[in-house]
């Protein structure tokens, strides 16, 4: 257990060491950002939109009991910006991106492609790990902002159909309910989520056991571990952000 933790710690410290040392793999970082971001866009759009719509629909009965359905936009805004947006994005990214990173690096490990990079005088850690972790850390926050936007659109459609709220008053209530701390905290949290998804996927792939079974296990462990850590981080961030409010 302690050995495994020390190994993880060494992997993370190596990431930060290699991050600042040249040469920099800019082309690969951009390619990975495209892989992580653009390829997840359709899934994120669908889930974000449905989340906004469904959450609004499910919250309505409780509020209507008190005749307070006019509070729906502010309730939705707080829930989506503070928790649902970052969390849904991170879970989608963990499933789609984390698993593909774990499987790709795992299979490269099994087929000696990582060794091949090393013997060709190239640093595989920089090329494979640093670029992917940077890409997830940059792209997940951007995707989170996009999810929040799409979820709020979904919520608006539901609200406008049921409560006949105008777009202007909806926007006013949405932004009135949240502060800069909320947006900043969500962004920061998403960077941590992105970093977690990237580093876990890379670690599991890089340390996968040989054989095709090892690749499957690496992909699976990448998803399960990063999802678990995302929830833990969500809980911790809640405690930290509370102290700033």
């Amino acid at each position: 257990m302690f050995l495994a933790l020390a190994d993880v710690f060494a992997f993370i410290s190596r990431f930060f060491r290699e991050l600042f040392l040249p040469p920099y793999e800019f082309k690969e970082i951009i390619r990975q950002c495209y892989e992580v971001g653009f390829r997840s866009l359709l899934l994120i759009s669908t889930t974000g939109f449905i989340t906004g719509m469904v959450f609004t629909n499910q919250s309505r009965p409780s509020l209507s009991e008190f005749g307070a359905t006019s509070w729906l936009p502010s309730l939705i805004s707080i829930a989506i910006v503070r928790a649902l947006g970052p969390l849904v994005t991170a879970l989608i990214a963990a499933g789609k991106v984390g698993s593909s990173i774990g499987a790709e690096i795992g299979s490269m490990n099994v087929t000696e492609q990582i060794d091949a990079m090393e013997v060709s005088g190239t640093n595989p850690f920089k090329f494979l790990v640093v670029s992917r972790v940077l890409a997830t850390s940059i792209t997940v926050p951007i995707l989170t902002m996009y999810t929040i936007f799409v979820a709020l659109i979904g919520a608006f459609l539901n609200v406008s159909m049921n409560e006949q709220t105008s777009f202007t008053s909806y926007i006013q209530e949405v932004f009135g309910a949240i502060s800069y701390v909320d947006i900043f905290a969500s962004l920061l949290k998403s960077i941590v989520f992105g970093f977690t998804i990237g580093i876990v996927g890379c670690y599991k792939g890089y340390n996968s056991s040989k054989g095709t079974e090892g690749v499957g296990k690496a992909a699976n462990a990448a998803v399960v571990t990063s999802m678990f850590l995302v929830f833990i981080e969500e809980m911790l961030s809640l405690q930290i952000v509370q102290s700033f409010r």
Binding site: M108, T111, E112, Q113, D115, A116, M117, V119
Partner: peptide, 10 residues
């Protein structure tokens, strides 16, 4: 170094 599996980058 020529690898047994060729180790070409897929």
């Amino acid at each position: 170094f020529s690898f047994q599996s060729s180790a070409l980058y897929d």
